[in-house]
Design a protein around this nucleic acid. Structure first.
Lengths: 340, 340
DNA sequence: CTTGGTTAGTAAACCGATTTATCATTTAAA
DNA sequence: TTTAAATGATAAATCGGTTTACTAACCAAG
């Protein structure tokens, strides 16, 4: 096991001080008036032996780790997985590494994860925050840590976030159902005080209200175990036979909803028209294909990482937090079209 | 911005040497014969002020980072996303953090990522390795780094891996199609020398050979861009009108295949019976539901992390590498049943 | 009375970088 | 001719821990 070489080894080999090596390697050669020829000699040798500074030591001294902490609800959810993938790419391109984890929307777990991230000295945070984590984030901000939220935000916390126009999205989707002639439209969502979920409910309510239609909302509890989502939906659909359309608040609920509908052998859209939030393969490939509210995942990821990198580079020049709202795209498919 | 307290602060406050604090915090109090009462006093104070040792400093000294590097093909692929999720959970429970990244099956990118991981001093590696990375892995092993592979392995590299019985899986699936009376069975796969893909092809060939049926294989090039996968499949299906069944080699290919079939308005299984490797919501929810070879993701993740943790704990006692092979489950659904 | 072994703990070295303060020379200015 | 500034580079301090080597005080045995 060859031991990695350190800056001292390089310094000794070249008969130069390690200070000098460090200056050169950090591009401070001119500033520190190191001669051209020495710079070249060092660079050549460093390249030759493939020396890489120990990043732990570097981080310890500088306080920067070149790491971003990414917290999503559940990395195995396709929405978060694709956002994570895009953020990963952009981050690596900019010299940052990602440490990620899934919060499961669990406040306590998230607190522990934040502690872990702090301890690891991550330079910045990207998160889809669970409820109840406000104080911890405020503490983070007070200590000067950049925090960018996405998918949702915390109203009590004044930080950057990238979101979509949730209210309009469900308003528009509901509107679409109404325009198709549906009169008994249900909304199935997670029981949640999170901003995005509240807006989604509100958009649905607004649209119904504008047409004087009756609301019918089912709230299920967020859970990793699908059965605990499928069961209440089954109940709900069984008990509400007059429903002619249903709007699902997230891809996960939508997927579970489709499973229920399939199990109950209901026909889409004849028995029940369907729209779901978030678009992905399951909806595209379903027969009939399911109308879905597509989030602009690339744009979200781009904006998130751009905002964060800006904050990381602009040291201390506290700009005030930005909030970015992006548009969604209602992908209209057969599942929400009234058939004659 | 309150600065975090260090071990020296604690030592000063308690009028005790930092060495002692360190010993106590690392559970070496008895071994170092520190008095019960001092241990208690220190522990109490540490808890009180919420002191956490700086893990960078710790890692720098000890050489251990409590971090595992996880490299998958593409974190946004549901198979890898769910494995990653499960590994994440187990790792955190055991005090390890995960740094992950997607290789895109790109050798060069993977090399860079390995360099990055080394530099970060990860304690161990979990990976679904791309081709051509043999030497880099061997170098890793030579330096005593634990490496566990999953999904596939590198025949030239002698290290632990967790796999499934690929050959039998496709053999069995093909057999199932043959038993249902299909005679023109195609196999669509990635052009790849990876062990798992080669075994999958072989299983298919073996089954056909046993029944004296003709092979019909399409190899598409691995690519992030779906269109480049959809196009050749469309071509293939258009040109091979006699096909009555097709077996897709991965979930990604299967999904693309379904898109093609849907676009061509072929009826499953009347025009074409379908089986895909990997099971997930798209296949379960498809109409008709698609027969799929389900990998035991939990078992895979469990085994991977168990093997790795064993290696991490068993310092230096070089056990010889294990190779674990798990069984898959052919979920038979209507898409592969001959309809009369 | 010396030697040796516990006991309970600490000072100092170390991990591998960055950063600050400093130091010979040489050159330019007064 | 003396002083000041510029040049080119370095020694030492630092980040916050862990580990090694050592010590002071006490007691028991020879």
């Amino acid at each position: 096991m060859k031991k990695k070489l350190s800056i001292v080894d390089i310094a000794n080999q070249l008969n130069v001080s390690k200070t000098t090596i460090s200056f050169i390697l950090n591009g401070r050669a001119k500033e520190k008036r190191i001669s051209e020829e020495l710079v070249e000699r060092v660079m050549k040798y460093v390249k030759e032996v493939g020396y890489k500074p120990n990043s732990l030591a570097k981080s310890l001294r500088t306080g920067k780790s070149n790491t971003i902490g990414l917290m999503v609800e559940d990395i195995s959810n396709p929405f978060f997985a694709s956002i994570a993938r895009l953020i990963e790419d952009r981050a690596y391109k900019n010299g940052y590494k990602i440490i990620y984890c899934s919060t499961d929307n669990d406040t306590h777990k998230t607190q522990e994860l934040i502690t872990m991230f702090r301890d690891r000295h991550v330079d910045g945070y990207i998160m889809a925050p669970p409820e109840g984590i406000e104080e911890d984030i405020i503490a983070l901000l007070k200590d000067g840590m950049p925090v960018v939220m996405f998918d949702r935000h915390l109203p009590m916390v004044n930080t950057d976030y990238v979101e979509i126009d949730n209210l309009f999205s469900t308003y528009n989707a509901t509107r679409h159902l109404i325009d198709q002639g549906y009169k008994n439209i249900a909304f199935v969502t997670f029981a949640s005080e999170q901003t995005q979920m509240k807006s989604r409910v509100q958009g649905y309510k607004d649209a119904l209200g504008a047409s004087n239609l009756k609301q019918n909302i089912l709230e299920v509890v967020f859970n990793q175990n699908e059965d605990l989502i499928i069961e209440p939906i089954t109940d709900f659909l069984t008990k509400n036979k007059k429903l002619d359309a249903v709007l699902f608040g997230t891809n996960h609920i939508g997927t579970c909803g489709l499973k229920v509908i399939s199990a109950m052998e209901l026909s889409i859209p004849k028995d029940l028209a369907v729209i779901s939030f978030d678009d992905y393969d399951v909806f595209k490939l379903h027969s009939p294909p399911v109308t879905a509210i597509a989030q602009p995942v690339e744009e979200i990821a781009d904006n998130v990482i751009t905002v964060l990198l800006n904050k990381l580079n602009a040291r201390m020049e506290a700009q005030r937090p930005q909030s970015i709202t992006l548009k969604t795209d209602l992908k209209i498919r057969k599942s929400s079209l009234k058939i004659k």
